[in-house]
Computed example of a mutant assay.
Amino acid sequence: MSIDIIDIRPLAGRVWLVPGDPDPDNIRGSVAVVADDAGSVVVDAGQSPTHAREIRHAMDAAGLPPARWLVYTHHHWDHVWGACAWPDVEIIGHVAGQEILRREAARAWSHRYLRDEVRANPLLGPSFRARALAMDTWDGFTVLPPRRVFTDELTLPTGVRLRHVGGAHAPDSTIVLVPDSSVALLGDCYYPPPAHLRSPDDAPDLTMVAGLVRDEYDWYVDSHSEPWTLEQARSFKA
Rank of each mutant, 00 (worst) to 15 (best):
L101P: 04
P66H: 08
C189A: 15
D136Q: 10
P194I: 12
E54I: 12
H74K: 07
G39C: 07
F150H: 03
G97T: 13
P179I: 05
L154H: 08
L154D: 15
H57I: 10
A35R: 07
D222S: 09
R214K: 03
R148M: 12
A105P: 09
I3T: 09
D188S: 10
G82P: 00
D23V: 02
W86H: 11
R103K: 10
P66Q: 09
R56W: 06
A108F: 05
D25L: 15
G140Q: 08
E153T: 13
V160D: 02
E99A: 09
A134P: 03
S127E: 15
L11K: 09
I6W: 07
A108Y: 02
F128L: 11
D60L: 14
T151F: 10
A38R: 15
L162I: 14
V165E: 01
W86G: 00
W138M: 10
G93N: 02
Q47L: 11
L185N: 01
H51P: 05
P192R: 01
A35G: 03
A134W: 02
R214M: 05
A233D: 01
S30H: 04
D201R: 12
T155S: 11
R148W: 09
H169K: 06
E231S: 15
A120I: 10
S182F: 04
D44F: 01
M59G: 01
E216S: 09
H79S: 08
R129F: 09
H196G: 01
D222L: 05
V209C: 03
S40E: 06
R103Q: 11
P65K: 02
L133G: 02
F141P: 02
D36E: 05
V209G: 01
G93L: 03
H74M: 09
G82M: 00
L17T: 00
D21P: 01
M59A: 06
H74I: 08
P171D: 14
P200C: 10
E226G: 11
S2Y: 11
D36P: 01
Q232N: 14
E90Y: 05
G63A: 04
I100N: 08
E104Y: 03
L186M: 13
T207I: 07
D215Y: 06
D25I: 04
E216F: 03
A52R: 00
V165C: 05
S182W: 05
N26E: 13
N26S: 14
A32V: 04
R102H: 11
H196W: 14
P49W: 00
E216L: 03
A32D: 01
P146F: 01
V118T: 07
V178D: 03
A45C: 00
R147D: 14
Y190Q: 13
V89C: 07
R112M: 11
V15W: 04
A105S: 13
W109S: 05
H111A: 13
S181T: 06
T229K: 07
R131F: 15
D188T: 08
R214A: 03
I100Y: 03
D44L: 06
L206D: 03
P87V: 05
W77H: 10
A83H: 04
T158P: 06
I6L: 13
V34Y: 05
R129G: 10
I3G: 07
H51F: 12
G13W: 01
